[in-house]
Design a protein around this nucleic acid. Structure first.
Length: 249
DNA sequence: AACCATCACAACCGCCGTGAT
DNA sequence: GATCACGGCGGTTGTGATGGT
């Protein structure tokens, strides 16, 4: 027998790995990542497990495009806090720091480029500093080199889809923030938390596959019986495999 | 149809803060 | 107080998907 166990796996997660991780997170909570990584038999690092959970498997995750409101929120919060993605993410229930970070990089860079083009280099119409002076982290933002024209400068923020929201004041935004904070944010998950369907309208991309649905079904149905009847990993995986084959034919 | 550019997302890496010993 | 292990965060990279030429 080869000792392959010591090798740390990297790269994309398989569905089986996801199932395993989910199972163990449900058993041990979502804190002791190193422990979970070890006992689960996943040859992954604790960090990797945590990342997978936080960015992909967490039941509260919202998927799909950012709404105009979220876009605006990201803009405002980034203006306020800079690249504090996790902090910003806390204000957007269901969105992860990674997601926001990626979103910012792609969308905002695009916007910045558009803006840059709109403002011809020669025009140099006084880099109005406005509020962006506080955005220290913008240094590292993709368009920080855009002729010192920060995205927030120009007072523009001409976000498509936002312009029709002109009546949406910052007060409204902050109200929303407060509400979402009270209602939904960061309620620590514990084993006793049944973070099943309640309040989490999440849909996982790869869940489109029937096997995943089957699998999730299995997992979420475990709730009450969990303490009495703990699936062993093998049981779960084999059931998953069964479901997969039975569904896919 | 083939190629290229861009987008969108997942994952890794390194650093830092914090708690335990 | 020093050291270590771990978790969290931000930056970066890799890759598949998509759209345009």
């Amino acid at each position: 027998m080869k000792m392959v166990h010591d090798e740390v796996r990297k790269g994309p997660w398989t569905e089986q790995e996801d199932v395993l991780l989910l199972n163990f997170v449900r058993l041990f909570g979502h804190r002791r990542w190193d422990f979970i990584a070890k006992v689960s038999g996943l040859n992954r690092t604790g960090k990797s497990c945590r990342l997978r959970w936080v960015n992909y498997l967490h039941p509260g995750l919202k998927r799909g495009k950012m709404t105009p409101h979220e876009e605006r929120l990201v803009l405002e919060l980034h203006a306020k806090w800079g690249n504090r993605w996790s902090r910003i993410a806390r204000k957007l229930p269901g969105r992860t720091d990674n997601e926001i970070k990626n979103y910012w990089r792609t969308h905002m860079r695009k916007k910045a480029q558009e803006k840059k083009q709109a403002i011809s280099p020669s025009s140099s119409s006084s880099n109005c500093h406005s509020s962006s002076s506080t955005v220290t982290a913008v240094d590292s933002s993709p368009f920080s080199d855009a002729g010192k024209v920060s995205f927030y400068d120009t007072g523009g923020l001409h976000m498509e889809g936002l312009e029709d929201e002109k009546g949406y004041s910052m007060d409204d935004i902050w109200k929303d923030i407060d509400m979402s904070e009270e209602n939904s944010i960061i309620k620590p998950l514990s084993l006793s938390d049944n973070y099943s369907e309640q309040g989490c309208n999440f849909s996982c991309p790869s869940m489109a596959s029937p096997s995943w649905e089957y699998c999730w079904d299995l997992l979420w149905k475990m709730d009450d019986e969990e303490s009495k009847m703990i699936f062993t990993t093998n049981q779960l995986v084999s059931r998953y495999e069964y479901g997969k084959t039975s569904l896919t034919g």
